[in-house]
Write a protein that binds this DNA or RNA. Structure first.
Length: 462
RNA sequence: UCCUCCUUAGCUCAGUUGGUUAGAGCAUCUGACUGUUAAUCAGAGGGUCCUAGGUUCAAGUCCUAGAGGGGGAGCCA
């Protein structure tokens, strides 16, 4: 008999009265000496289906082995529930035990666990209601991203994960080598990379942007979606050494188009979650974050504030709040400053633009004032920067001068410069931290709880 | 990497100015109960008090170092 997913058994009542087959993992078993109730979950939905077992019809040793965590196969009749608390249930005819779970040693209990404890059992964490919700939402957001861009005529572009350019300028990189680390070939005391796999030093990418621009300047609009690596020693609830990033890049878009895209993009994703994953959101709302759904609706229904950096500085200076770090034009905004703007002053997402050029990357388009660039950061409550992007400098001369000022080796990015030499075009793009989006959508507060197997300094378990 | 807090039963935590045999709830096990809802009721078992030193007649408690974890900061997405 074909397996019925529990989501279909619960949500589609046309099967009422039929005999169906369900398979899943036991969350709880309770009852008395004549009837047992098994809450069964197969991951298709956060809800369990209740299996009603007439103990007179089943072997006692079999029933005894059905404990929290066990995997079973049940054939029975789908009926309207006699009890309260669920609409349908299954009257079991046959039960097959796939795998037992010794209750003395199985770490998951029917009681809720702390997210910190669950991180230590990453191999079993997916079996919890909480993490099931996170994983389903993670999938939904990944799917919605591809759907969004596909509907808008963007092309999904695969940029390399191994890169030879150290010019991306987004922090420490992981080296990639096939050399024997215990016996590294050297010439004059320095590593002889000519003997390495690629014949030169290479690293894991910190961004697909530069290659993404090459695609945008040919296909019009592209986006990347893939893993990104940062070897920074960051120990915070907002950083991972391996995370996923979405980077759209669009020819002929200026900074305003870029902001419009970013805002519409995020709102569409949140709307998708509200429309397709309400069961998961409701569970997270009930268990972790009572304002989650309200906050998601607020973001969908309200315009983001758009504000030049210079005006943000004025607001901070006039706030008369005592910040730990001094506010003055030219300094990068600290977390406390961003939080003040987003959480205290405006109380909604803020897009900051036109930052001083000295605190932003070399490729950003220089404004006519000579001191700012067309950068944009989208700041969200609690999370901080969820998107960072800019209009790109399309002038060969200006870009080259900036590269020389910053002593970036031209030999590493000659190919990037050539896009400005041959048929250059105005264009813009941004990077969205996928896990940071998930923090917002799930209401979680630690980024390690929205990725299946987090990679952080000193931690690569599972 | 810096600041700060934490680490006691499987889990979550209490443990008084240092003082007898280290406790609770949940979980587990045993028993009771004919429709339960994180079932309920009764009973039982369960401890390297993170590790290593030190102070003291006496350390879960105080001191030093280390490990692991949380929060904040920096870097950033």
């Amino acid at each position: 008999m074909e397996r019925t997913k529990i989501i279909d058994a619960i949500k589609h009542y046309q099967e009422i009265g039929k005999t169906i087959s369900v398979k899943g993992w036991v969350r709880t078993k309770r009852g008395n000496n004549s009837v047992a109730f098994i809450a069964l979950n197969d991951g298709s939905i956060v809800h369990n289906i209740q299996i009603v077992v007439d103990l007179a019809n089943f072997d006692e040793t079999l029933i005894k082995q059905i404990t929290t965590g066990a995997c079973i196969h049940v054939i029975g009749k789908l009926v309207e529930s006699q009890g309260k608390g669920q609409s349908v249930e299954i009257q079991a005819f046959e039960i097959e035990l796939y795998g037992s779970a010794d209750p003395e040693s199985y770490p998951l209990q029917k009681k809720g666990h702390s997210v910190e404890f669950l991180r230590e059992i990453g191999h079993l964490r997916p079996r919890t209601n909480f993490f099931g919700c996170v994983l389903r939402l993670r999938h939904a957001m990944a799917f919605a991203i591809h759907q969004y861009f596909n509907d808008k005529g963007f092309f999904y572009m695969h940029t390399p994960l191994i890169t030879a350019s150290d010019a991306e300028g987004a922090g420490e990189m992981f080296n990639v080598t096939t050399m024997d680390l215990n016996n590294i070939p050297k010439i004059d005391g320095k590593v002889d990379y000519s003997q390495d796999f690629f014949g030169k030093p290479v690293s894991l990418t910190v961004s697909g942007q530069l290659e993404g621009e090459l695609g945008a300047l040919a296909l019009g609009g592209i986006y990347t979606c893939g893993p990104t690596f940062r070897a920074e020693n960051s120990n915070t609830p907002r950083h991972l050494a391996e995370f996923w990033m979405i980077e759209p890049e669009v020819a002929f878009n200026d900074i305003t188009d870029n902001m419009n895209l970013a805002e519409d993009f995020i709102k569409s994703l949140v709307k998708y979650a509200l429309e397709h994953n309400m069961d998961d959101l409701q569970f997270l709302n009930d268990m972790f974050d009572k304002e989650l759904i309200e906050r998601l609706n607020f973001v969908v229904n309200n315009d983001f504030i758009r504000l030049p950096y210079t005006e943000a500085i004025d607001i901070l200076l006039n706030s008369h709040v005592k910040f730990e770090y001094k506010v003055e034009w030219g300094v990068d905004l600290q977390s406390e400053h961003e939080r003040y703007l987003v959480e205290q002053h405006f109380k909604k997402p803020v897009i900051l633009t036109d930052y001083p050029k000295d605190i932003k990357a070399f490729y950003m388009k220089q404004n006519d004032d000579g001191r700012t660039v067309r950068a944009m950061d989208v700041l969200f409550p609690k999370i901080g920067e969820i998107i960072g992007g800019s209009e790109r400098e399309e002038s060969y001369e200006k870009l080259l001068r900036r590269i020389q000022e910053l002593h970036i080796p031209e030999k590493d990015i000659w190919w990037y410069l050539e896009t400005r030499k041959f048929g250059s075009a105005p264009h813009s793009g941004f990077g969205l931290g996928f896990e940071r989006l998930l923090l917002f959508v799930t209401g979680m507060t630690n980024i390690r709880d929205v990725i299946p197997f987090p990679r952080t300094p000193q931690n690569a378990e599972f």
